[in-house]
């Protein structure tokens, strides 16, 4: 192999945008399981977004609820005969299907918002640590190390014990529990990329630091970050559900899937499984779909596997 031309000064991410993207799409589509995961994920997210239009009733408009319809098994007709409770009802006569669709909205919303916030914070810190190094880098990574040695559920529990319940509190807890993953990933990617010739070339060209950071370094750090973020959305949703199930997360006024499952827990013993099983299935499908997509993304974006 004789390389005659000098390496181009443009970063690999800027040049040739169309073709790699197409190749990634093709590689992603090679796995039928991953395509299924993507379809499932899109369906769930769409259902969550369109909940007010898809749901047979508004589960939180008390006027629409009929206590006489309480704890009906799946497939029962409502007392006034106007609708069929496909997935049964809870103790207040609330249609479970509607409750799940509304619950998905909250679960997905909290998971995505928390992940994006954690991603933004972690990415900025990690990028700065990787590019500038020195004391800032050392201190930041020390904090991240200590925090990562504790499981995120513990960190989140402590914070919620301090702050109390609330949708804003749980988002803060999730962000605090997860920022370190992004900081670590970004930093190591930035360290690797920062040593490459195109960054050196950009420096020699006299480009400003922010421009190098955000136009050159960041795009090339993105692949591992996308994979981590995809996996962490699933982790965030599961964590929120767990905390809400334990009664530490969202208040009763914001019934996410975790809270629905907790509500149905006591009825499990008497065989009224649907109140907690169906929200659980919805949660499981959501997390599974995200994990399938994330797994394939990791394979597709892994440079070590690409060359093979």
């Amino acid at each position: 192999m004789s390389e005659t031309s000098p390496p181009p000064a443009t970063s690999p991410a800027e040049a040739d945008v169309e073709r790699p993207l197409r190749r990634l799409v093709r590689m992603y589509a090679e796995s039928r399981v991953a395509l299924f995961g993507l379809a499932l994920l899109l369906a769930i997210v769409l259902a969550a977004l369109l909940a007010p239009w898809l749901a047979p009733q508004n589960p939180y408009d008390l006027i629409q609820l009929d206590m006489l319809d309480g704890r009906l098994p799946p497939g029962s007709a409502s007392g006034d005969g106007r609708l069929t409770y496909l997935l049964g009802t809870d103790e207040q006569g609330r249609d479970m299907l509607s409750a799940i669709l509304y619950g998905l909205r909250i679960s997905v919303g909290v998971g995505v918002v928390a992940t994006l916030l954690a991603l933004a914070i972690g990415m900025a810190l990690g990028l700065a640590a990787g590019y500038f190094g020195g004391r800032f880098d050392a201190i930041l990574m020390r904090i991240a190390d200590i925090q990562l040695s504790f499981p995120s559920i513990l960190v989140a529990m402590i914070l919620l014990a301090l702050f109390g319940q609330g949708i804003d509190k749980i988002v803060i807890a999730l962000v605090a529990a997860q920022w370190a993953y992004y900081a670590r990933t970004t930093r190591s990617a930035a360290l690797v990329e920062g040593r490459k010739e195109y960054i050196e070339a950009a420096r020699l060209l006299g480009l400003s630091t922010p421009r190098i950071l955000f136009r050159h370094l960041l795009p090339n750090c993105l692949p591992p970050l996308i994979v981590v973020a995809a996996l962490q959305v699933a982790a965030a949703i599961a964590l929120e559900a767990t905390l809400s199930f334990l009664g530490l997360g969202l208040p009763v006024t914001e019934p996410s899937l975790g809270l629905l499952i907790a509500n149905g827990f006591q009825y499990l013993y008497s065989g009224r499984y649907w109140i907690s099983v169906f929200p659980g299935v919805a949660l499981l499908l959501l997390i599974l779909a995200i994990n399938l997509v994330a797994d394939q993304l990791r394979d597709v974006l892994n440079p070590r596997l690409q060359s093979q």
Binding site: A241, I261, F265, S276
Partner: peptide
């Protein structure tokens, strides 16, 4: 193992109770 990763612990607990205990 992918399923095991996706299943939230608390939900698996409920399912175990439902199947093996109830």
């Amino acid at each position: 193992s992918i399923l095991g990763f996706s299943l939230p612990t608390f939900w698996v607990g409920l399912m175990l109770i439902m199947v093996f205990a109830v």
